[in-house]
C-alpha cells in the first residue's frame, strides 16, 4: 500500500464554518480522511465532533468552506447526497431494527426484488459473503433476529450495513462505547480490517486506548477548532489528552511538539516523517506506547 502522504484525501473539508444562531460551533475547520487509513476524531464534549460529522453526513449544511470528495468540490445538502458519494455513518445508537433478522437489517430500505417476491435467497447469500469477508464469527444464523445478538455483534452488523453498499468513507460514532473488553477488541479488529480493505474510516472515540490501537492519524478538535492533526505513531497518550483538554501540546515530555492549527500532514509537502505502512493493531499500539511515559 502506498503511503497516504503521496495521495490526496478521499474526503476533505477546508475552512468549514458552522453556526447555530449566534453560536459558532465550527471555526475554519480543516478535516481530511484517507482511503486505507483510520482517522480518529477526538475532542471533549462540545468540541464540535458531532456537528462536524453531521456536516459531513449532510444533516447540517455548512455555512462556508469547501467540501471536497475525491479531489473535487461537491455539494452535500442531505444524507442522501452523502450516501450517493459513498459516505456512510454508523451512529452511536445503532440504527438497527430488533424485530428484523440480520439479512433484513442489512438490506433495509434497499431490498433486492425478485419477480413477485423479495429476493430473499440472493440477499442471504450476499449477507453471508459480506459477513464472511468481515470475518464475523459467532453468528449462528443470518436469519437470527437482531434482538438476540450481543452488543458487539450488533455493532458489527451496523458496520457491515454501512460498508455493504460500496461505500468509500465510513464514519463510526463511538463504536465501542457500550461494549465489553472482548467485544471491543472484536470491533476494533473490524475497524482495522475495513481500512485494510481500502476504505477511509473515521473513528470518533473518547477512549484513548482505542484511538492509539487502531488509528493512523488523529484529528483533535478543541472548542470548534482543529487543535492538531497528527500521525498516531508520532504522538502519545498524554499529548492527545492535552490536545483535547487544552487545545495545545508541546509541554509534553516526549515526542515532537505538535503544530497547532492545520498541522500540514495532510499535504504532500508535509515535513512529517513517513510511516511506511499501515500497521496492524498490535504493532501500532506497541509503537505508540513506546513513546509514552509510564
Amino acid at each position: 500500500m502506498t503511503d497516504s502522504l503521496d495521495r490526496d484525501p478521499i474526503l476533505e473539508l477546508r475552512g468549514v464554518n458552522k453556526s447555530f444562531g449566534a453560536v459558532q460551533v465550527l471555526h475554519d475547520v480543516h478535516f481530511a480522511a484517507y482511503s486505507g487509513e483510520v482517522t480518529a476524531l477526538v475532542g471533549d464534549n462540545g468540541a464540535g465532533k458531532s456537528t462536524l460529522v453531521k456536516c459531513i453526513a449532510g444533516i447540517h449544511p455548512i455555512d462556508s468552506g469547501t467540501y471536497l470528495f475525491n479531489g473535487g468540490p461537491v455539494n452535500v445538502h442531505s444524507p442522501r447526497d452523502a450516501s450517493a458519494l459513498g459516505v456512510e455513518i454508523v451512529y452511536q445508537d445503532l440504527a438497527l431494527c430488533n424485530n428484523l433478522d440480520i439479512v433484513q437489517n442489512l438490506f433495509l430500505g434497499r431490498e433486492k426484488r425478485g419477480r413477485f417476491v423479495l429476493d430473499e435467497p440472493g440477499m442471504e447469500e450476499l449477507t453471508a459473503r459480506t459477513l464472511t469477508n468481515l470475518s464475523v464469527r459467532t453468528v449462528t444464523s443470518f436469519r437470527q433476529k437482531v434482538a438476540s445478538l450481543s452488543g458487539g455483534q450488533r455493532q458489527t452488523i451496523a458496520i457491515a450495513k454501512a460498508v455493504l453498499w460500496n461505500s468509500k468513507v465510513v464514519i463510526l460514532d463511538e463504536p465501542t462505547a457500550a461494549l465489553g473488553v472482548a467485544q471491543t477488541a472484536q470491533v476494533l479488529e473490524l475497524v482495522r480490517r475495513l481500512a485494510r480493505a481500502g476504505l477511509a474510516v473515521v473513528l470518533i472515540s473518547h477512549n484513548m486506548n482505542d484511538v492509539l490501537a487502531v488509528s493512523d492519524r488523529v484529528c483533535a478538535l478543541y472548542l470548534g477548532r482543529v487543535a492538531a492533526e497528527v500521525r498516531t505513531a508520532e504522538t502519545t497518550h498524554s499529548q492527545i489528552v492535552e490536545l483535547i483538554t487544552t487545545g495545545q501540546s508541546g509541554t509534553s515530555q516526549k515526542g515532537p511538539p505538535l503544530s497547532p492549527h492545520h498541522a500540514d500532514v495532510a499535504t504532500p509537502t508535509a515535513a512529517a516523517p513517513v510511516v511506511a505502512d499501515i500497521l496492524p493493531p498490535a504493532a501500532s499500539a506497541a509503537s505508540s506506547s513506546n513513546g509514552e511515559p509510564g
Binding site: I10, S35, G36, G86, T130, N133, L164, N166, R193, G198
Partner: peptide, 13 residues
C-alpha cells in the same frame, strides 16, 4: 484509487 466493492466482488483479506 482503490475502492471496495463488497457487494459484487468480495475483498480478499
Amino acid at each position: 484509487m482503490k475502492s471496495v466493492q463488497l457487494v459484487d466482488q468480495p475483498v480478499p483479506l
